[in-house]
Design a protein around this nucleic acid. Structure first.
Lengths: 183, 183
DNA sequence: TTGTATGTAGACAATTCGGTCTACTTTTTG
DNA sequence: CAAAAAGTAGACCGAATTGTCTACATACAA
């Protein structure tokens, strides 16, 4: 992997994430990264291809982060608490790996693309599917409902933190709801 | 309220909602609505002002819809079931008042605007605050946690339906989680 | 009748968009 | 060393962007 290529992906990810895809032009990405336009188009055929690369990069970073955060949970309740407490750290910008919190990059991206069958949307869907899988792998019970509920609470927490501001109560509620579900 | 003004707001709302704010140009809104550009700029000083009007219009429609859906719930559990079953109808495009489901317009909008203190974001935050208030007014118990959890589940359901498309199981999970919470 | 509101079509300006291209320089590698 | 690969700056293209402006038409109420 070329150094410039990685720099372009990183810069695109940061800018797309914070200003939306259509809110950021190619020229802005070039200016911020300091890479020449010719170089960009030797690595990517279009803006969309750069976006796809950025989505994939974010996917890998996020999944790796999530797996590490849940790695030492010893039972289902610990999975839940560690999940939501890690999210709280993200919301409070205490997770350098994930950068400044601006909601979920994949949710934000879906808001800008209406065609559900396009490659971009499919990548977003696959990411969410993988996130659920990571949680499922840590849940000992074969109860599929538990995984689904945790995922829904997770999405709700992310969106609420983004739109309504980050609150300590939010995470408490998620953990309480998890406890109620796990009897 | 002028007829053309309302037509512009309705058209802008539909197009913004389905393609994102920055994905839709003024000219497209004019073409679809059949209104002259001069007329638009006699009613609104800028695209942003039109967006604010569209957000407000959506806010009123959604709140009215939500209130009507929860109006005849007789206890907390009924509030929860009617809430999530109404959401299911929305996801399945069986709620003409809300139009074709494309996630939450306010969440999608927040994804395109990073400045939390700008007027657009504040409108989105106020909308979510009002949604929580509508739910709170129907919950008999003074338990604030119940309202918060329902809200989080609601946001999670909306986002999951938008990104991952799973609908039937999703609503079941939300209702199950509500039941667990309400003992 | 005569203002005044509100509407029309569309040219135009200034800027930005994604993307191509030329000409040149640097870095890596066999 | 020499060839190939990867980089640079930035002019340029056509299309699209938001917003302004001129000139004119229609509807309605005092």
């Amino acid at each position: 992997m070329s150094k410039k290529r990685q720099l372009l992906i990183d810069t695109a990810l940061t800018l797309f994430y914070s200003h939306g895809i259509h809110g950021i032009g190619i020229n802005e990405i070039l200016k911020v990264s300091g890479v020449a336009k010719r170089t960009l188009y030797s690595h990517f055929t279009s803006k969309e291809e750069l976006l796809l690369a950025a989505l994939e990069a974010r996917h890998h970073v996020f999944i790796q982060w999530l797996e590490s955060k849940l790695s030492n949970a010893k039972n289902d309740l610990e999975v839940a608490t560690q999940l939501f407490e890690s999210l709280a750290d993200w919301f409070d910008n205490n997770e350098p790996l994930l950068g400044e919190f601006r909601g979920c990059f994949f949710i934000n991206t879906c808001g800008e693309y209406s065609d559900v069958s396009c490659e971009i949307r499919q990548l977003c869907e696959q990411h969410k599917s993988k996130v659920r899988q990571v949680i499922a792998d840590k849940i000992s019970s074969d109860n599929q409902t538990c995984v689904a509920t945790l995922s829904i609470l997770m999405e709700g927490a992310i969106v609420t933190a983004q739109v309504s501001g980050k609150k300590a109560l939010l995470i408490e509620d998620c953990i309480n709801a998890s406890q109620a579900m796990l009897h």
